[in-house]
């Protein structure tokens, strides 16, 4: 039983990271109908900027919370600037082009970001300096570190804040209006370009937070780390219903738990025929099943246009 609880805990931590990244995909898709494949690489940039700050300040004697805050701050500033500039330079000129053009541009931006990062940070794995020493406690027989708990709680907090921002504030309302119909929203006096920039700003900020979490949790950063992470988060967004903010949160958590349970139990359930190395297969199998049975995702509304 405690093994099962432990797998759920593992899944929730992994899922928190997926959910934060998935939000970036889903918000951009909701407003532009664009799958921003560069989003995973923005997470990578956030992670590596954070690592650089940790390395620069780890021996400086500054209090740990301040170092963390500075790292998150630096990562957010860089990622937000990057996200907004990418939209301005790469996507806005193509806004009225056929859908395939911005999609391919997004893939191009992704590759550009990866290899720029390889130039800046080299292609080596970058280890995280010893900064935190997580303490462990037990919940329902499962071991949880304070770091894991902090990741989960912070992710939930950020998502709650985002949900409040989108549903309760004026700007959030404008975002939802833009999502529903750009032209009409424009006629109502909403500055569409500003709202789209804001969407990239918020999404990239979340990506930076997710990047720092990855670095703190796994203790390792690498120029190509954003690719698989982005793919998983995209899967999570589709699972929950792409374009739907609550769906991205749910999809992220679900995907984390599915992966955890799959790698924990596949071997036993199939008598050793499938090993735990098949966990990604199961994650993507879930994606295929969702697309076949419920194309708009778990929480998505059926629309004429399918994701």
């Amino acid at each position: 039983m405690d093994i099962f609880v432990q797998q759920i805990v593992n899944g929730l931590v992994l899922g928190s990271i997926y959910a934060l990244v998935a939000l970036g995909y889903t918000m951009v898709y909701g407003i532009l109908g664009l799958i921003n494949f560069a989003h995973g690489d923005i997470v990578m940039v956030g992670a590596l900027v954070g690592l650089s700050v940790f390395h620069a300040l780890s021996g400086s004697g500054l209090p740990v919370p301040l170092v963390l805050l500075l790292a998150v701050g630096a990562a957010m500033v860089v990622c937000m600037a990057l996200g907004v500039s990418i939209e301005r330079l790469a996507y806005r000129p193509l806004r009225h082009a056929p859908r395939l053009a911005p999609l391919i541009t997004a893939i191009g931006v992704s590759i550009l970001l990866q290899y720029s990062a390889a130039l800046v940070w080299s292609k080596q794995y970058i280890p995280m300096p010893e900064l935190l020493s997580p303490t462990r406690f037990t919940v329902l027989g499962a071991h949880v570190t304070d770091l894991q708990a902090a990741i989960f709680l912070l992710a939930c907090g950020v998502m709650a804040g985002l949900y409040w921002f989108i549903t309760k504030t004026r700007v959030g309302t404008a975002m939802r209006a833009t999502e529903q119909n750009k032209e009409v929203a424009g006629l109502m006096g909403i500055d569409i370009n500003r709202i789209i920039s804001l969407t990239f700003l918020v999404g990239s900020g979340l990506a930076a937070v997710a990047g720092i979490m990855v670095v703190l949790y796994y203790g390792i950063g690498h120029y190509s780390m954003g690719f698989i992470l982005g793919l998983k988060a995209f899967t999570a967004a589709v699972l929950g219903g792409i374009g739907n903010v609550r769906g991205a949160m749910l999809g992220g958590m679900l995907l984390g738990i599915i992966e955890s349970l799959a790698s924990g139990y596949i071997g036993d359930l199939t008598g050793g025929f499938f090993g735990s190395n098949y966990r990604d297969v199961f994650a993507f199998l879930v994606l295929v099943l969702v697309l076949v049975l419920r194309p708009s995702g778990l929480l998505g509304q059926a629309s004429g246009e399918r994701a």
Binding site: N10, E259, G272, G275, S276
Partner: peptide, 21 residues
């Protein structure tokens, strides 16, 4: 227990949990 991962993964919590059992 005999578990497998890949040379690109960084998350082993699930297989380690299983092994812990």
């Amino acid at each position: 227990a005999r578990e497998h991962t890949t040379d690109k993964d960084t998350d082993f919590t699930a297989i380690l949990t299983k092994i812990k059992g």
